[in-house]
Amino acid sequence: MFSYRHAFHAGNHADVLKHTTLIALMKYLTQKDTALTVIDTHAGAGLYRLDGDYTETSGEAQEGIFKLLSGSKVAPAQAQRAPAAPKPIAKSANPATSKGAAVKPAVAPDGWAPALQDYIDVLRGLNPQFAESGDVAHLKIYPGSPFIEQQFLSGRDKLKLFELHPTDYKSLSGNIEQLGVGRQVAVSREDGFEALKVFLPPPARRAMVLCDPSYEMKSDYGRVATCMADAVKRFATGTYVVWYPIIPRPEAHDLPRKLKTLAVKAGRSWLNAALTVKSSKLTTDTSGEVVRPGLPASGMFVINPPHTLKAALQAALPQMVALLGQDRNAGFTLEHGG
């Protein structure tokens, strides 16, 4: 049950999609004067070393954040224009816009898509040498969702973090304590699926929930769907955000469909964004051994998304595909309704 450690996966292509989306959500939701309660059901350790043993062992960050920023030196924080980037052509299956349209060059002449620029700025804030030089060799610290969420909070907002893994809970508690934010952030070693019920509806009637389990156990898929159904029933106007892997498993493909059905039946708006970087097919190496593809794709499903999120991701997803794509199967989908 406790074998999964996100440290092995920090900064991978799924994190690029997840955290770009999360930043766009937090940036919008924290603009209002009314207090916001943010609940992270599976918070992880909060901060990760990109030069640590876990990340270097998996190599996933090399195909994620480092690949996104590589190719040429990233502009320092003072500059507004992004570096030149590869210009592969990919297909976007996008029912909400132009299905099958060619993806534009990864980075337009005037720079990164705004949502990706905000994501890079968050990384700069945690890595001063990277911010000053633009050199990805100085990108050492990677934020998990708790640190991203906390960065956007005002003094009136609250953040509730849940993590069951004993080692990650200890790391998360220590990392949050160093922020010196007092009672604004609460860390608990509890099952986030169950603990969520206590906090809905929130006192100020505004909330965002991020549900991001490991899916190490197949039962997580069903628990996510059940948890979100209960949450919407308790507090229909909250913003609910679910990250999910897209792998050759029926449960993985059923989950976004279940969430869409849930949103439609509840009369709530929804958005589903998915990023594919490579084929999910098994291959063989020169010795004939079967090579599993790892994680080929992932998605973000949002119930009650801000009206600005669709446009933000429409601009960012083509750049992600062009920079993170590993083969001709790379692409994205962006659907919405309600």
Rank of each mutant, 00 (worst) to 15 (best):
F2L: 09
D15A: 04
V16Y: 03
L17C: 04
T30Q: 09
L36T: 03
L36G: 01
D40L: 04
H42Y: 04
G44H: 05
A45V: 06
Y48P: 10
S58W: 07
G59M: 12
Q62E: 15
E63R: 14
L69E: 13
S72C: 07
P86Q: 02
P86I: 06
T97R: 11
K99M: 08
V107L: 11
V107Y: 04
G125V: 00
P128V: 04
Y142H: 13
G144E: 07
P146R: 01
P146K: 01
S154M: 08
L159G: 10
K160D: 05
F162Y: 15
Y169A: 06
K170N: 07
Q184A: 09
R189V: 05
K197H: 08
V198E: 00
F199T: 01
R206L: 06
S214K: 03
S214P: 05
Y215C: 13
M217K: 12
T226C: 05
G238M: 11
V264T: 10
V264G: 03
K265H: 08
L271K: 04
T276R: 00
T283H: 04
T284V: 12
D285W: 06
T286P: 01
I303V: 15
A312G: 14
Q314G: 08
L324A: 05
L324S: 04
R328F: 00
R328G: 07
G331H: 00
G331Y: 01
L334V: 01
